[in-house]
């Protein structure tokens, strides 16, 4: 009996080790979105290109889309822009852009100069939809299914690796379902 008790510290250490080991390599800055499995919040926002056109959540209906949150003030958005253009042009992915807390003029110049990967561009200068989505730092990229349900969120730069490993499997899954 006494000998069995001696194993308690070992057991505790092993348990603690397993718990801590499971945390290694996880980036604590990446939070899972609270909106996974829920519809994109209601919104009415102007089209970036046509100020008089009002858009709502129906822009996500019908096919799987990526929703990319960006701004010209965001250096990491500049990093990923080329990859977004590649995704839109070479991979035929439908990307909805959410221009977040930005100025229309600057945003349009940026798209002119670097290429426009967005089939639809929402203009959110006060960050209203961004706030309802729980955006806490651009760039963020969401996968939205054909019913307008949020399925995945990636915080940070999208590149080929992120696309292959994280986004593409989700996109493919919801494409097949529809």
């Amino acid at each position: 009996m006494r000998r069995v008790l001696l194993f308690i510290p070992v057991l505790l250490a092993v348990t603690l080790g397993i718990v801590l080991f499971a945390g290694i390599g996880k980036d604590p800055n990446k939070l899972e979105s609270a909106l996974i499995g829920k519809p994109v919040p209601e919104f009415v926002l102007a089209d970036l290109h046509n100020p008089e056109v009002q858009l709502g959540p129906e822009v996500f209906r019908g096919q799987v889309s990526l929703l990319n949150v960006w701004g010209t003030w965001c250096p990491a958005c500049r990093d990923e822009h080329g990859d977004l253009v590649w995704l839109a042009e070479q991979q035929g992915i439908r990307i909805v852009g959410l221009n977040y807390k930005d100025e229309r003029e600057l945003a349009l110049q940026w798209l002119d100069r670097l290429g426009d990967p967005y089939q639809v561009s929402l203009y959110d200068p006060r960050g209203e939809l961004g706030f309802d989505l729980g955006v806490y730092g651009a760039p963020e990229t969401y996968v939205i299914d054909p019913d307008g349900i949020v399925r995945y969120r990636h915080v940070g730069v999208v590149n080929e690796k992120v696309w292959r490993e994280d986004l593409e499997p989700v996109v493919r899954k919801f494409r097949e379902d529809s």
Binding site: E32, S33, A34, L35, D132, L133, G134, Y136
Partner: peptide, 8 residues
């Protein structure tokens, strides 16, 4: 706020 940003 939790419904937007999570339990975090």
């Amino acid at each position: 706020l939790v419904s937007r940003f999570g339990e975090f």
